[in-house]
Nucleic acid binder design. Structure first.
Lengths: 230, 230
DNA sequence: ACAAATATAATAGTATTACTATCAAGATAG
DNA sequence: CTATCTTGATAGTAATACTATTATATTTGT
């Protein structure tokens, strides 16, 4: 899909809204907040989530640790924020690119293309480097829910965007084959699996067929349509 | 499969061998080492990997922090040790239960049953509580490779057991359908996916079909055989 | 234009983590 | 029965993950 001028303006006039409670103060409302998010993504991408600290981020952006704490309770909440932002962005792109498609098969195929992360327009949504964020999500997203606090945080709604995405995919799957018994499993496996295959491609190439020439979408499209054959 | 007396003895006389370098001193060689591993698993299961520390473990087993450091460099290496142990144990069970099966379809089905974690014999392999370890792997395994050091540690061979398991599954897949183009993707997706579906069943039941009545193996067997249909 | 409110920066301080180093006591092996 | 090896106890360090306080700068409402 070619991004038109019109769409560029649409991008710029839209704001991704993040669930209350993930942040203490909305970073989108100030310049400092935007720098925290924008540079935070770049730092996690470079040094990994474990080595990343608010102190280092403060130095990087010429600000103070304590100022960052006014926006986010801790770095775990910061990761939840980034994840919500990322999945909202994916959801937005998913809807944008599929809502006009009538044929359920075409629609699902398009959805899988977007979710599998191979297509990545280089249009920057405000202050966020989506390519860096995408890498961060591949390497760090699982850590946002593999915690002892997952049930409470789930109740707070911190994973609702991600769950909604799974349900959207489930709906598309069921549209194509209402009798298929594992639509939720398949949808959640695809969403998790796409991140995983991208990680394997970069770090464990001996246990995946994905590489520069074989995009992950080839596998997932093949898999999903095989499962839905009547 | 019913575990015979003979097999119980087999279990007890076998030792799972872990790759050099993961530990500083082999914990299987001493009583203290076994307590570290045995209780460490229970503690991580209870409090999660993030809250787990060697100091707490030392208190728990009536020993000293510094003594534990003589066995493992840090808690990350401890997790790598547990993961190697777990996947070796799975590999052992996989081979044990499938090597006599001639028919490729039956063999693969049996393999998927074992890997999907629904069948869990309650035979304890020495000092390790496999049920607790299984829960630990579901919640913590990803953290062992989602790090910035993954490439170096992969070169050291710390993930070789897991990769070998994927390749075993790939072989079974290719036996059944040599023309299937994504045997590695499918194998690695199954291994990762089974852990993920078990996690979803326990924490995000709205995005999986798996539950007490519907075991994960149903989905994965259906999925794999759909993919391999000619 | 000015007072009041708000945002940020700077500093200090605390409890915990993730170790390392040293030394002494007990067990064990040659 | 001495030499070595293992463990336990203590101390210490640098970093982390915060919280609290205060001063300064900026914005805003009238």
């Amino acid at each position: 899909m070619i991004i038109s001028f019109d769409m560029e303006y649409l991008f710029k006039s839209l704001k991704i809204v993040i669930q209350e409670g993930v942040f203490k103060k909305d970073p989108e409302t100030t310049d400092l907040g935007k720098r925290i998010v924008g540079q935070g993504i770049l730092m996690i991408d470079e040094m990994g989530f474990e080595c990343f600290t608010f102190k280092k981020l403060g130095e990087q952006i010429g600000s103070n640790e304590s100022s960052i704490y006014r926006y986010f309770e801790n770095k775990h909440m910061f990761l939840l924020y980034l994840a919500s932002w990322y999945w909202s962005w994916i959801e937005y792109r998913l809807v944008l690119h599929t809502h006009t498609i009538e044929d359920p098969e075409d629609k699902l195929r398009k959805a899988l293309e977007i979710l599998s992360g191979d297509v990545m327009e280089d249009k920057s949504f405000s202050h966020i480097n989506e390519t860096a964020l995408h890498r961060v999500i591949i390497s760090e997203y699982s850590k946002s829910y593999l915690t002892k606090e997952v049930d409470e945080e789930n109740e707070e709604g911190y994973f609702s965007v991600y769950k909604r995405l799974v349900l959207r995919l489930r709906d598309m799957i069921e549209k194509l084959n209402p009798k298929y018994a594992f639509s939720l499993c398949l949808a959640s496996t695809v969403l998790e699996g796409t991140l995983h295959q991208q990680f394997l491609r970069d770090h464990f190439p001996t246990i995946t067929n994905c590489n520069k020439k074989v995009p992950a979408k080839d596998f997932f499209i093949d898999m999903v349509f095989n499962c839905l054959k009547k």
